[in-house]
Design a protein around this nucleic acid. Structure first.
Lengths: 150, 150
DNA sequence: CATATTTAGTTTAACTTTGCAACCTATATC
DNA sequence: GATATAGGTTGCAAAGTTAAACTAAATATG
């Protein structure tokens, strides 16, 4: 069996499992657009500029994975809406983590003209930081994976 | 120009910029392995089981992007070490966000046998949560993108 | 010293996935 | 009835992935 993308869906690693679902090239960008209020096939397609067959297959995969549900569109009988589930909404942490890292490391100074802000106050979100159970902030080398039983 | 992957590197979106760098199928898994202490080509290759040419091109891209530096191996003149830079270490937040989401949504109950723990205490990390500047925890619908100047 | 092994790749050939354009179907609107 | 819109499907070309073979240098072994 050659040329086939490795299946990470049975890995013991939570990161690999997540990537199996949302690690495709367009998936997280579709979810990002959904957070910005887009709901229809055509809205995603126009905004992202990806081919319709790819969008179709990604949406199918995301619906199968329980990240979107398909709802009827109250305004149009031939259109339907892709609505984020709870599982999909919880991807917000990953999106913000990606945004903050990109903001820090992937723009020239002054190049970035948007901010991720609190809807209530319009002020930027606080930075996501790794935190221990007791509330201590911890650094990038202060965590590890631990087997549960022995 | 057909069949070519869209370049997200000039997008105004921080998420798209991040994905341009670390959105490839294997890149974040290589970084994950680096956090677990792996440093050599062969260690990555054996552990991840990916083809060597793919590992070679991913490592090249990650070095170019400033996520790894190549250092000489003090124990072997023909081996060298891939060492995470500061920029690479700051991906920890993204990895933990992916881990926690995967832990919640991508395993059957009892299937997951590892935990992401604080190295000092051995206890699981606190959950990453979106937080406003004043410390309020906010939900998945309480943030948005805002243009910086008008 | 000669041979074998290890490390870190590169090259090649077969195969899979992605991407674009063009086409299709069903409903709605003029 | 003609046209537009939403949401696809199909066919083909390009790019990505794989395993396996091959290089080349450094080290280990006999």
């Amino acid at each position: 069996m050659k040329g086939k993308r490795t299946d990470l869906g049975n890995s013991a690693c939570g990161i690999a499992r997540s990537l199996q679902v949302i690690g495709d090239w367009w998936s997280l960008l579709i979810v990002r657009d959904a957070f910005q209020g887009r709901q229809r096939f055509t809205e995603f397609q126009r905004n992202l500029g990806l081919a319709k067959n790819i969008l179709s297959s990604r949406l199918k995969k995301l619906v199968d994975a329980g990240i979107f549900t398909v709802e009827p569109d109250p305004n149009s009988a031939l259109s339907h809406l892709y609505v984020l589930t709870r599982k999909g909404e919880e991807l917000c942490v990953i999106l913000v983590a990606l945004w903050q890292w990109g903001e820090d490391h992937c723009f020239e100074t002054g190049e970035l003209d948007h901010r991720m802000v609190d809807r209530a106050t319009g002020k930027p979100l606080a930075r996501l930081t790794l935190t221990a159970q007791d509330g201590r902030k911890i650094g990038p080398r202060d965590f590890r994976l631990k087997a549960r039983h022995g």
